[in-house]
């Protein structure tokens, strides 16, 4: 999809952390029993269903735990339609729903040792003991968002596409140099 553009159009900002638009990203919503969904993920992508509030990562992409009956598969943008079709096939007649939602959200990457401090300025979340591969859905300032920890200092954030600009600006604003707090050390 050569003409696919993300809402943030490659925006970047640097301050307490490096903040970057992840660009067009493939996403597939799966609704249904997690055991059932896990089986199809395993057969199609070699991934499994994550534990509660966790992310499973593999070569094909990531699987995010969204709710007791919802997962979100994150994968390269161009592969989403075919993977969705394959998952649909693998699920067969089972009660499950597959929907491509690659364009419905903005994906951002945050990196740097102060990422938790920046997030804590906008999210009512306790990041102490937040593990690698852990995910939290909450709000960023006034809108819904989810964050997950991909490595010690690398985090990913998703929010709805229409408010991507708002979330990016809010993070960039509170992440400006001079706002260091040293809350999470």
């Amino acid at each position: 999809m050569s003409d696919a553009v993300s809402a943030l159009k490659g925006a970047r900002a640097s301050g307490m952390v490096d903040l970057a638009d992840a660009g067009p990203t493939g996403m597939i919503t799966l609704r249904g029993d997690h055991g059932l969904l896990g089986d199809s993920l395993s057969s199609v992508l070699g991934l499994s269903a994550p534990e509660r509030r966790r992310v499973v990562t593999g070569e094909a992409g990531e699987v995010l735990w969204m709710s007791p009956d919802e997962l979100l598969v994150v994968l390269p943008y161009d592969t989403a339609p075919d993977v969705a079709a394959a998952l649909e096939t693998a699920l067969g007649d089972a009660f499950a729903t597959v929907a491509v939602v690659s364009d419905a959200r903005s994906v951002m990457h945050l990196s740097g040792a102060q990422t938790r401090d920046v997030l804590a300025k906008l999210m009512p979340v306790d990041f102490a003991g937040f593990e690698l591969g852990e995910l939290r859905r909450s709000r960023v300032a006034q809108v819904a968002a989810a964050v997950w920890r991909r490595s010690e200092n690398d985090w990913a954030l998703i929010c709805f596409r229409s408010v991507g600009g708002y979330v990016f600006e809010a993070l960039a604003t509170v992440g400006k140099p001079g706002g260091e707090v040293g809350l999470y050390r």
């Binding site: 553009v5 809402a7 300025k121 906008l122 300032a141 229409s162 408010v163």
Partner: peptide, 15 residues
């Protein structure tokens, strides 16, 4: 807090 100017409120934008 940060909620002033451009980010006073979320502004939803269509493509």
């Amino acid at each position: 807090g940060e909620a002033r100017g451009e980010i006073f409120q979320p502004l939803r934008k269509t493509p």
